[in-house]
Design a protein around this nucleic acid. Structure first.
Lengths: 302, 302
DNA sequence: TAATTTTACAAATATTGTTTTTTCAGTTCA
DNA sequence: TGAACTGAAAAAACAATATTTGTAAAATTA
């Protein structure tokens, strides 16, 4: 089926406009976005005005001359714009390094969504036809076992403690106490916890932290699936632990308070079993993926 | 996990450069591409030089001052560039029309790959959270049955004959006789055919056309899977029938000859069972998808 | 109320992309 | 062999576009 687009879409829309939109949405203002992008506030304003004009819809909710959030259409566009920018990132990054070939089995912790990382791996696989990657998604504890047993070549896992010397730190992320209704949950005597199943690195840390602080608690919901855990938190089953990027409608961060102790910093790291050339080249590839380069945790609008 | 790209990739790379690259790859020359894009040969040349510079690799195979094809990197970039442009197309198209909501079961003929169409449907689903689409992939014959039985709301199917009055033509495509090794296959007395299983609209047409022309033939390979059929043709099982866009390495179009009759024009069309508001709005949506707008069948380089 | 922050707008400036023109190399054809 | 043709590359002039600068208005903060 040809389905030839012939001439593609609206040729006035540029990547820079999308990038500007995403940055505004992430930084919450034209000034901040301009600073981040290295251009003036005026340029940002105009860039967005044009994008809105070409898209024939408003993207930013303005009230009294201030940006107070995204419109419905803006919220629809944001993830797609991110995806487009990210896939270009990945393509460029893959294209710039030599082609990979070989077979690799890669473990991926499913503690949290790692959409960006998965996209990077996917485009790497697509553009390196000689590469066969078998991805196994499981909890950190299980992956570590498989790695030791030789069932995996490498794994990307979560941790809160010290890493082994050969491990490669990919990313750090602050994790927060979250709940659907912080006030109500905190009023309960026993703290109801919504956590991942056994083998989750964060789970142990959370329980230990609570024990040390002398907070009585019980598990009200346990699942190995990220979807389920978030769903349970949103449904009000109890208190969970998530990084900022995993917040969604119906889940709020619990502000600092006397009862809940401070959580340690989360770490995402890579561990390899052997260092054959293919493995180490793929490891270098992953470690230099564009989605791992930034380290700012941005404050998103809405 | 934040995975914040912070500042995205190489900000010098533009959509226009990608578009130009794809157009050059499709039209096989800077002049032709310029004509297609509505700009001069010089602009196309410079645009591609920049893209190659920023990407730090050569995309076009030049010999004696002429483009003779894509480099390895060029072939790696092409499908990804297409995807990026296409997903922007889809996003813009979805954003410009009102949001859809409801439940729809959609049949999709698997005669041929319809990557672009599937991408359009996917981005429609992603951006219309109120929309639940159940996609069933099968051969045209089976889909038509399901439609009559009320198991499907709508279906996109293939045909070579007349359409029903209520059907909507989406796309026409020329189909060609193909084989791994045309010369060898044509030498055989009985023509070995590689076709889809029962229920494929093209299959019946092919057999009928051969019978009318008095060409003796037999089925050497039959499968309901597009992958398998292409694989069998490439492996030399016999003669198949494909549109230009489905050609791949190891499959060549058989030039016109005395033995093989001319094939009818293929049609891709949509049939709906009922015309509830949701269905008809979704139908209009699909019919106006960017990937269906063009009608040129381009001659690709390499 | 004054100071600060934030967005919008207009004109000047800077940058970028485009065309025009020319050149060169290879191909075709007389 | 030479003339005409085609496709690509390069340079300079030109056109279009984006960016900055500066200013104003409105809202927030102290």
């Amino acid at each position: 089926m040809s389905m030839d687009a012939g001439l593609f879409s609206d040729r006035r829309i540029t990547l820079e406009q999308l990038r500007t939109f995403v940055t505004v949405a992430e930084s919450g203002g034209f000034n901040a976005a301009g600073l981040k992008l290295g251009r003036s506030q005026s340029a940002v304003t105009q860039s967005l005005q044009k994008l809105e004009e070409y898209l024939e819809c408003l993207l930013l909710e303005r009230r009294q001359g201030h940006i107070i959030g995204l419109t419905h259409d803006g919220r629809r566009l944001l993830p797609e714009a991110r995806k487009i920018l990210l896939s270009l990132d990945n393509v460029v990054s893959v294209l710039r390094r030599p082609e990979l070939s070989g077979h690799i089995s890669l473990g991926l912790s499913n503690n949290f969504n790692a959409v960006e990382l998965q996209m990077a791996i996917a485009s790497c696989i697509e553009m390196n036809k000689g590469l066969r990657v078998e991805v196994i998604s499981s909890l950190t504890g299980h992956l570590a076992q498989m790695l030791e047993q030789g069932a995996l070549d490498m794994a990307i896992m979560h941790s809160v403690g010290e890493l082994e010397p050969a491990d490669r730190l990919l990313k750090e992320e602050s994790i927060y106490w979250v709940a659907a209704n912080p006030e109500a949950v905190l009023r309960e005597d026993d703290l109801p916890l919504v956590l991942f199943g056994d083998g989750c690195a964060y789970r142990e840390a959370v329980v230990r932290t609570l024990d040390e602080a002398g907070v009585s608690h019980y598990l009200s919901y346990v699942s190995a699936s990220h979807e389920n855990v978030c769903g349970a938190i949103a449904a009000g089953f109890g208190v969970g632990v998530l990084p900022r990027s995993e917040l969604r409608e119906g889940i709020r961060i619990i502000p600092e308070n006397d009862r809940l102790p401070e959580l340690p910093l989360g770490r995402i790291f890579m561990r390899t079993r052997n260092n054959s050339p293919i493995i180490s080249r793929f490891r270098d590839f992953i470690c230099s993926a564009p989605c791992l380069s930034g380290s700012t945790e941005s404050r998103a609008v809405q």
